[in-house]
């Protein structure tokens, strides 16, 4: 019953298929044309402080621009253990990210354990709180629970492109248009010590994260 190491690294590099290959090429080409400006907190700088063990959270719809901007930083992202997750992992690996495979609906406890180990090792973790299947923009409690267990701060992040296509998918997946400007807003970190009321800490934390991620 002991869960095996479920990082993608343990399974090796996943080959690109037609869909993931297209996404990788499209993302890499489009990404080169995007211009980014970073706003918000300076308390945690994800591009400098690389050994603090922080949890970044953003909506599923904003994966493309944020995975692209984080590509040089190398974060460990929770990716679903599905065919779509394989494709996302294949792209993420080519942008220097590690992945933890699983989700709130498959292998949750193994994912939580792996996230805790990753954070304890000083690596940053990305959790998509409305993934992998929604409901859209509704935070699930996993990120809050992991933060409370590890005492790691959670940084809500939003990508706001000036011009973008929005797909007709469950999450309204956002593809920023070429040459557009994208504001990446790092919100103030939510620290576990802010949530003290016994019995409702996870609930309070989840609610605060929901509020921070909404416009």
């Amino acid at each position: 019953m002991q869960s095996p190491d479920n990082t993608a690294a343990a399974g090796g590099i996943i080959p690109l298929d037609l869909v993931s290959g297209s996404a990788w090429v499209l993302g890499s080409v489009l990404g080169r044309t995007w211009r980014f400006s970073i706003e918000g907190t300076r308390e945690i700088d994800p591009f400098r402080d690389r050994d603090k063990g922080v949890i970044f959270c953003f909506w599923h719809s904003q994966i493309l621009p944020l995975a692209y901007i984080f590509r040089g930083v190398g974060v460990t992202a929770v990716v679903s253990a599905s065919k779509d997750g394989d494709r996302a992992t294949a792209v993420a690996q080519r942008w220097n990210h590690d992945t933890i495979r699983g989700s709130s609906s498959r292998g949750q406890l193994a994912v939580i354990r792996q996230c805790i180990r990753t954070l304890a090792g000083g690596r940053n973790v990305v959790i998509i709180p409305d993934g992998p299947r929604g409901p859209r923009e509704e935070v699930k409690p996993g990120a809050a629970m992991i933060a409370l267990m590890t005492n790691a701060p959670v940084v809500p992040v939003r990508a706001i492109p000036r011009r973008a296509w929005r797909l007709n998918s469950w999450d309204g997946f956002v593809i920023p248009k070429p040459f557009t400007h994208i504001t990446v807003d790092f919100k103030a970190p939510l620290h576990p010590s802010q949530f003290t009321e016994a019995g409702t800490r996870v609930e309070q934390f989840t609610r605060s994260l929901q509020e921070a991620l909404l416009p």
Binding site: L109, I112, K140, P141, M145, G199, V202
Partner: peptide
């Protein structure tokens, strides 16, 4: 289920 979906402490 309880930890992943419900945030059980």
């Amino acid at each position: 289920h309880l930890m992943g979906d419900k945030g059980a402490s």
